[in-house]
Write a protein that binds this DNA or RNA. Structure first.
Lengths: 199, 199, 199, 199
DNA sequence: CATGAATGAGCGTTCATTCAT
DNA sequence: CATGAATGAACGCTCATTCAT
């Protein structure tokens, strides 16, 4: 895709690190973290396994690096949200921004979605889960009835999982995103404004 | 744990097959399918790896056997639902029954939820996914606007994932179940009765 | 072949031992001794592995039993030949009788032919080889030139191997046998009557 | 054996691949292909099993590599022979050259001779057999009487097997080779010039 | 006459990782 | 910036064999 230019085998300047990340993410998402071996990654890049170790200390290190950007983005979102008044508007804006982050890191979310068992055993996984919980806390009101809390979780989680499950449904991806956001927003609105007391 | 008593070699009655299934499900759910080795399972049972192979032909075979009951239950649900009129009542009953199935196979659902990458590469996984899609088809109306379809998917999926995510939230499990069912039902109701025409 | 009669699943009287031998010989010859497992034999007979151990002490024991008849036949041939005068007529008769023995134990010869490495490590194999050498000694004259000794070995060995290699050549099996015997005889005749002195 | 000296970890230059081949051929020929484990090979080389896998993709791959040289030699022989007139002289030259190939790959021929059951199930084995048949076709006349065809096969096969069987006979190896070639040639001559019509 | 249940040893193979060059 | 060569640990699986019933 990128290197279609010039010589039959381009010199490939200092971009190897990024190429590793790219291929690794593809394979981790496609076949799972454990089932993807460094040999596969190296082969697809036409370098040796040892080359990977020049750029990353361990296999887990490769995975961690993939999360860096996303983690920063979400941290910023959390930071911003924490400073806002906990109004409905804020919550809606959180969902909107979260949807954007999601769209910008689709493969990574797919990876998380499909490798939760792995994530649970990795530092990065635990870190990420904590951030999701922080986000959830910004959406829900801990004193609200359980059903409202479920609504908030459901909103967040549906956005998360929706893109992949909806792949089997016909329709334009952009439309799907909108529909997911719409339903999520609706759930949060309902949770925020519900006047009735619990069950 | 259990057989710490007397004789150097316990009699070990004819329950080994079930004990294997039990331990396997625990470990598969806890640590993931790939990361659980047959050695671990055998060690926890205090038998040799070879003993596992007396009862199951392959590792995958153990997994498959775990799905048998659940698969039958869901097939019955699908069969039943297919014969009902596609009313709102029917849909609500589907959710209720699905919730029951879920409660009766909690560890298995947790396993699925957390090992999707693995499931995708296994026959049983594909089979199960197909059944989920059948269920979704019984809830949604293919001509309805996208947002309504999202509501149905979201209902199903939230029930699915909810039990595990909500473990970190305080509250009685039975209450949580009810809350999940309530929100799911609400989503399906909304999808069923929505008068407005999509986008 | 034999038990085509009556009930869908015959009671199978005391012939199990023979059935084991029959199936074992088939598989040993077809797939090799090492690559044939007792499980395969048992499965093909629709009994359990343990049943085999009721009839034979070890896997090697099954193999040994297969050689019993043939061994006796060849021992008789050797004994008979040892008492004859070492004339050309005797030698020709040896070949003829050997050809008969061969025809009556075709699968076994095929097994030997194709599993020599295995035979060399088994008692029975060594025993059999010794007998072959005895036979060779009855055909050749140790003081004759090397070429004559080669002729005798070649005669014996060609009969041995011929049946299997010639399977790929068109023609009636009985004719092939005759042709093999003819060539073998011719070689022995030449070895016996050669007037020239070796090298 | 060699590196018993000084340094705790010998340098082990770039000859490992060949050392593997050498040891493997020894063991395959001595104990049979199936009964030779990679552990044995590795131990004899004082490396780990995994080291073998750096140099060869599978166990079968090691075997295949052993055949490469011989296969090329025989292909050249076949190619050369196919271009010659099918005279007696040509046939004699084929045997002579085949004898040379045989002498240069003695262990390999022994391996084949003693592991035919294994060879039959391996790609390389089938390939090799096809080549032998090609050679046989270059020696025999398909319209000649069966006995003449047997003579040709017997010639080829005796050379093949002779070296190993004759190990138990006293005499100089070089002399044996000559005697084998002499008898083989004689058989082919007889097949080529036989005036009588078959049966 | 046979089975059900299990074992211990071993197999071929793969993996993440290391390190001298 | 990377490779060639290797390791140690583990994996899923199969085997011949045993023994109480």
């Amino acid at each position: 895709m990128s290197s279609s230019a010039g010589a039959p085998r381009a010199p490939r300047r200092g971009n190897t690190r990024q190429r590793i990340q790219d291929v690794a993410l593809d394979l981790f998402a496609e076949r799972g973290y454990e089932k993807t071996s460094l040999r596969e990654i190296a082969e697809q890049l036409e370098v040796t396994k040892a080359a990977l170790y020049y750029h990353f200390k361990t296999k887990e290190d490769i995975l961690d690096s993939l999360f860096e950007d996303l983690t920063r983005t979400i941290d910023e979102l959390i930071e911003w949200a924490a400073e806002q008044p906990r109004t409905l508007d804020t919550k809606q804006e959180i969902l909107r921004r979260y949807g954007d982050a999601l769209a910008g890191a689709e493969r990574l979310f797919r990876f998380m979605q499909e490798n939760q068992a792995t994530m649970r055993e990795l530092r990065t996984g635990e870190d990420f889960k904590a951030r999701m919980m922080r986000l959830l806390d910004l959406l829900r009101d801990p004193d609200a009835p359980l059903a409202d809390q479920v609504r908030c979780f459901s909103a967040l989680f549906s956005m998360h999982a929706g893109m992949f499950v909806l792949k089997d449904v016909e329709g334009d991806p952009e439309e799907k995103r909108k529909a997911l956001l719409e339903v999520a927003t609706e759930l949060v609105v309902r949770a925020h404004t519900a006047p009735e007391t619990g069950k």
